[in-house]
């Protein structure tokens, strides 16, 4: 390499060139922030501000008539937890079971749509999403018809003595399904199934089919191919799906309200009743915060455990 041709350029801070070099990137660097602005404002107004407000509410005492004042009454948290821990545990348990069921039902479904449905793919996809075209409430109410005491489903379950077993296990009540834990879990599973299927489908569909061929070519039987290639590669979908199912399911109150009885009330029902009936805003806010913190902790742990950060 010759060096004669390229003397180091002298520093010329006063030239237009170097000015441009200095200013343009600054302006350019700002552009992303300008583009982010609406989103940031949105977050501030509709997420951060309510959150701060909720935090402050949870530390207040008072009544509707006398007003609420921040008194840093942290005990509200302990009292709320002490009073309503059974509903917390129940919410987490129901949501967890529903999530597992969603995964068990949703994975084969997503797999079929992604790899086997062929030209029916879109049709099946629409069928999966179809329930969203009606309201959450109507969908849940429909389960009251499906699981009606005198309906064919419960009839069949009784005929097969399934309900004797489930009642002995405490997940149904006598010869009925409605107003039992099973009904609530069924409702949760059904209502959140699409949230599981869609991310699963997306991540399965992205898998190069040649990877399956490659695995087969490398002596993996179909089951092994699934375990070693397909499933690991669909982990981002599994993680996203379980989160999208678990989080709203844990906070849900409609399924428990409509399909459950007094013993199936979840933490969402408590928050709702504290807000609307009892008008105990601090307790309701504290409960919301505890729920949020608990879910956040569980989700963090889960993502760490599943080790999918670099795949997502």
């Amino acid at each position: 390499m010759t060096t004669t041709e390229t003397p180091a350029p002298p520093e010329r801070p006063d030239t237009a060139d170097s000015l441009e070099i200095r200013t343009t990137p600054v302006r350019k660097r700002l552009i992303p922030y300008w583009l982010l602005l609406p989103g940031i404002l949105w977050l501030i107004v509709f997420f951060a501000a309510p959150l701060v407000y909720q935090a402050s509410t949870s530390l207040q005492t008072g009544s509707l008539e006398e007003g609420f004042k921040v008194t840093w009454h942290v005990a509200t948290y302990w009292d709320a937890l002490a009073e309503y821990w059974p509903q917390f545990v129940r919410s987490v348990a129901y949501a967890a079971v529903a999530t597992v069921l969603c995964l068990a039902l949703g994975y084969p479904l997503a797999y079929l749509i992604a790899f086997k449905a062929g030209r029916w793919r879109n049709v099946v996809m629409i069928l999966v999403i179809a329930p969203f075209f009606t309201s959450f409430l109507i969908r849940t109410l429909a389960w009251k018809t499906i699981l009606a005491d005198g309906g064919p489903v419960v009839g069949a379950l009784n005929h097969l003595h399934v309900l004797d077993v489930t009642s002995a296990l405490g997940i149904t009540e006598g010869h009925r399904v409605l107003a039992t834990p099973l009904a609530v879990v069924c409702g949760l599973t059904y209502n959140f199934l699409p949230f599981m299927v869609l991310p699963l489908y997306t991540s399965l569909e992205r898998i190069d089919p040649r990877l399956h061929e490659a695995a087969g070519d490398l002596y993996a039987r179909p089951a092994t191919t699934f375990r070693r290639v397909t499933f690991p590669l669909s982990m981002p979908g599994v993680v996203a799906g379980t989160l999208l199912t678990f989080i709203p399911a844990a906070g849900d109150y409609i399924n428990a309200e409509l399909l459950g009885s007094t013993d199936q009330k979840m933490i969402g029902n408590v928050i709702q009743s504290q807000f609307l009936r009892v008008l105990d805003y601090p307790t309701a806010a504290a409960l919301s915060f505890i729920l949020m913190a608990a879910i956040l902790a569980m989700v963090t742990l889960y993502i760490r455990k599943s080790g999918t950060e670099d795949l997502v």
């Binding site: 061929e213 087969g216 070519d217 490398l218 002596y219 993996a220 070693r228 795949l311």
Partner: peptide, 29 residues
């Protein structure tokens, strides 16, 4: 089926397993 044939393939665009490192890709078979 492919997994019972003493034949291996180098695929077009390679079809390497993206979730496994090079070592595990090679060790797969």
């Amino acid at each position: 089926p492919p997994y019972k044939r003493q034949v291996n393939t180098v695929f077009q665009n390679y079809a390497l397993f993206p979730h496994l490192d090079i070592y595990e890709n090679v060790a797969f078979g």
